[in-house]
Design a protein around this nucleic acid. Sequence first.
RNA 1: GCGCCGGUGGUCCAGUGGUAGGACAUUGCCUUCCCAAGGCAAUAGCCCGGGUUCAAUUCCCGGCCGGCGCACCA
Length: 578
Amino acid sequence: MSEGERLTELAKRRGFYFPSSSAYGGTAGFWTYGPQGAALKSNIEDAWRDRYVVKEGHQEISAPDIMPEPVFEASGHLDGFDDMIVECGECGATHRADHLVEDNTDIEEAESLPNEEVMDLIADHGIECPSCHTSLADQPVDNFNLMFETNIGPGSSSPGYLRPETAQGIFVEFPQLSEYARNQLPFGVAQIGKAYRNEISPRKSLVRVREFTQAELEHFIDPEEDEPPLAEVEDVTLPLYSAAAQESEDGGQRELTVREAVDEGVVESEWVAYYLGVSTEWYERVGVDMDRFRYRQHLAGERAHYASDCWDAESEVDGDWIEITGFAYRGDYDLSKHAEHSGEDYTVFKQYDEPITVERATVDPDMSYLGPEFGGDAGAVADALEALAERNPDAFDDDEVTVEVDGESHTVPVEETNFSVDEVTENGEHIRPHVVEPSFGVGRIIYTVLAHAYETDEVDGEERTYLDLPPEQAPTTVGVFPLMDKDGMAELASDIADDLRAAGLSVTYDDSGAIGRRYRRQDEVGTPYCVTIDYESLEDGEVTVRERDTTEQKRLPIDGLADRLERLATGDLTFADL
RNA sequence: GCGCCGGUGGUCCAGUGGUAGGACAUUGCCUUCCCAAGGCAAUAGCCCGGGUUCAAUUCCCGGCCGGCGCACCA
C-alpha cells in the first residue's frame, strides 16, 4: 500500500476526511472533514492565524465566496481561465483550439475570436489532431472555464462566480481596507476561506479538489520605502530549488539562510525571503517533516498572469512534490486592474516628510470664450490646454497656443487660457501599493501533515500505528480512561475529564474495551497524552499519564493535572521533566 | 476529458448466474484489565441505471466514484 493509500484508509476509518455525498454516488473533487479532520483543520487554521495575523499585526477579513462578473473581468480570471477546447472525434483527446489555430496560421490572438470562427479556421486550414492526426474539421469548439458560474438573483442578467482564490475578496475592497488601516503602509489583510475551481480531473484525495480552503495574506507595501524585518528570520535555513538550478543539468537544491539567499540574489524580493523564513518555522510548528520539504522557484513560463516572481513551498508524499503554498510578488497588478475597471481610487496618499514647493504651470481657460469659439469641442480643448501646460509650459510663451483635438488643430489666444506659473505646495503623492502574497492551501497542508505524521513501530511485539502530530495540532489533547468501568473509577475519571475540559483542553473519554485498545485508538488519531484512573487513584489521588510517541507512563497527582497537561501541550514542559 | 485497472459490512479482502464469507473494527455481557488478551453474543454489505436470463452481486452496455498514465493545473 502506498503512503497515500494508507493515509486515505486511516482518514476514512478514523474520521479525518472522506468523499462527500457518497450516498448519491459521490462527487469528484469534494471531501468532507470528519470529526478528527475538522478539529485538525481548525487547529492548523488557528496556528496560521496566530502567526500571520496576530504575530504580524495584520487584519483578518471574511469576504463572500460569490462575486459578480466584473470582479473577474478585472482580475483577469474570466479571460485567463476560459479555454477554448476542441475534442478529437477519433481519439477523444482534448486540445486548446486557440493554440492549434495560432500554431497553424498567422493569427496570434485566436482566443479573442468567436468559437464559430475558430471552428471555421480549423476546417479551412485542415488542422489535425496533434495526437492521432485525424482532421478536426467540424468538431465543435467549446468553452471551458475553470470558474463555477452562477446567477445572482432571478434570471441570467447578473452572472456571478465562485471565487477561484480568496485574494480577490481582499483586493476589491482595498479602498475600504486601506481606510481601516488609517491609510498607512505597510499593512496586511488576511483571509481564511473557501475557493473553488472546476478542475478537469480531481486527483489524490485532498490534493486536487474542486472546493478547498485557502489561507491568504495580502501584504500591501510601499515598494520605494518599506522593508521587511528580515533580521527576525535571517538565520533560518531555507531549502531552495531555484529556477536556474531546475534548468541546469547538475543543479540541485541549496540550503541557504534567509540572509544568504537575499545577499546572493537567489531570492530576489526581500519580502518574499522574509515570508519564506517565517513560513519555514511555521511549517515545522504544524508538523511538516522538513526533510521532505523545499521551496521551488517558478520557471518563467510557469508564472501566473499577475506574478513577477514566485516561489512555491512543496512537500513530498509518495515521491511526488505537492504545492502547499505559493509566495508571489504580485506588484501592483491587482490594484491597478481594479482601479482601471471600477474607476475607483486604489491608491494611498503618502505624505512627504516636509512639504515641497514646486513651480506648477496651470491654466484656467475662459469658457465663455472657448464655448462660442469651439462649440462641442470646447471641453476637450480645455483638457488639452491643461495637459499641454503641464507637459510643455514654454508653448504658452507666445500670443497664441495651438492644441490638437481628434486630429484637428485649434488655436487659442494665450490670454484667454489664464495661463500662469505658480509656486505650489505639495504635501505628498498618491502611490499604488505593491502586494506580497503568501497563499496557503489548507487541505494540502493537512494532507502533508498527516502523511508526515504517520508512523509505525512495535510495542510488546505488536505493530502499532500512530500519528506523531504536534500536540498543538492534534484533534484531541488528552484521552481519559477508567481502567475499568466499575468501583467508582468511572466516576472519578469522568470528573477528571470534566475538569480538564473546563481548563480548556480538548478531551476524549473512553471506557470501552481493554486499556491497550483504548491507547491504540488515541494513537491512531494522534492524541499526545492519555490519563488512566485505576484502583490506586481512588486511594492516593494519583493517575497514570502516558505519552503517545514513547508509550512511557508516569504517576501524577490529580491536583494540578490540567495545568501540567496544558504546559506539555504547549511545549512549555517535556514529558521527561515530569 | 481520454486510456488502463478497480468498486462486496465502518475498514481491508475472498467468492458466486440461484442474493454471500473471513479478518479487523464496533456494541453488550463475563474475566481487579496499564499497551490491539480470552470467552459468549449482537449489529452491519454486493456503487447506480439499463440489457441478457426463469433468475444478475456475478455476464454485457452506460453512468458515478477511486487509483495510475496522458492532458489540464490560469
